[in-house]
Write a protein that binds this DNA or RNA. Structure first.
Lengths: 151, 151
DNA sequence: CCTGAAATCCCCCTGTA
DNA sequence: TACAGGGGGATTTCAGG
């Protein structure tokens, strides 16, 4: 939790609207000069609030037509078991996201594959053979919509 | 699916490594001049492969200490029911991601809240009152790790 | 079509008040 | 904080492959 004023929040909102926004444009929106805006962005980066910029790729246009979320329950849950699982899951190229969660499942994996048969290959040869895997539940992604943090 | 050569893929890999990378830096990596690299990036953007750049914010440092994934099963699933649900879910500020999925659940929502009691408020007053909501399952996020698309 | 080189524009970034 | 200058990236133009 870091002290932010209204202008910082306005800058963050602007950056959420457009991750490639320039300091000069943001400055006009928030009523600040370009250098002042740039220094605030720098401060937000150094403070860790702004962790970086990520490109958004269109998986479908790259030939990955199938995205599946897997809920995974581990059979054994010691510290070593968690580390083994995470390391092995990270070695699967099709795994885009590894989330350690608390609830009905222990992990959630986001898996991309070229098509359903490609996904079946990944599921059977890679996911089901991960160390400690117990129950696995799958949800195929149909569509998704991102929304901004209300700050 | 768009035709990409090895250089395009190398550029995309470089951009996944650093979303703020400059055309000149990328050019050095892929063995191309700065204008040629810049034109390829532009082409990837116009072709929709590169959908944009997004800033990564640290939710914890902004005071959102709790992230929960909800799996939601709808009681009724007509076209109108889906649209009503999506519209109402999008009106909840704490909902960061709305995923329409196929499987055990119909929707997955990513919800951020300031703390557990704030999450309880969102869950009881906003989520449970969404139109058509049936079963709800929750997973609290402990940690997550993003990985790059293998292209 | 693609490329690289050069030239221009404009923004970032920094020093300074 | 704003202002001003140098440096460098973004963008266009041009010529060659």
């Amino acid at each position: 939790m870091i002290a932010l004023d209204d202008i910082d929040r306005a800058i963050l909102r602007g950056l959420q609207h457009n991750g490639a926004a320039r300091a000069s444009d943001l400055g006009k929106k928030v009523g600040l000069s370009q250098p002042a805006t740039w220094r605030r962005i720098k401060r937000l980066e150094e403070g860790g609030v702004l962790r970086g910029r990520r490109v958004v790729l269109d998986a479908k246009k790259l030939g990955f037509d199938v995205t599946v979320f897997l809920g995974i329950k581990l059979a054994t849950k010691g510290r070593v078991a968690l580390e083994d699982f995470e390391r092995a899951a990270a070695a699967i190229p099709e795994v885009q996201l590894i989330q350690h969660v608390l609830g009905l499942y222990d992990y959630r994996l986001k898996v991309v594959a070229r098509d359903i048969s490609d996904f079946e290959r990944v599921l059977r040869r890679r996911v089901m053979t991960l160390p400690g895997v117990g129950d696995v539940e799958a949800n195929v992604l149909l569509s998704d919509e991102h929304r901004k943090l209300a700050i």
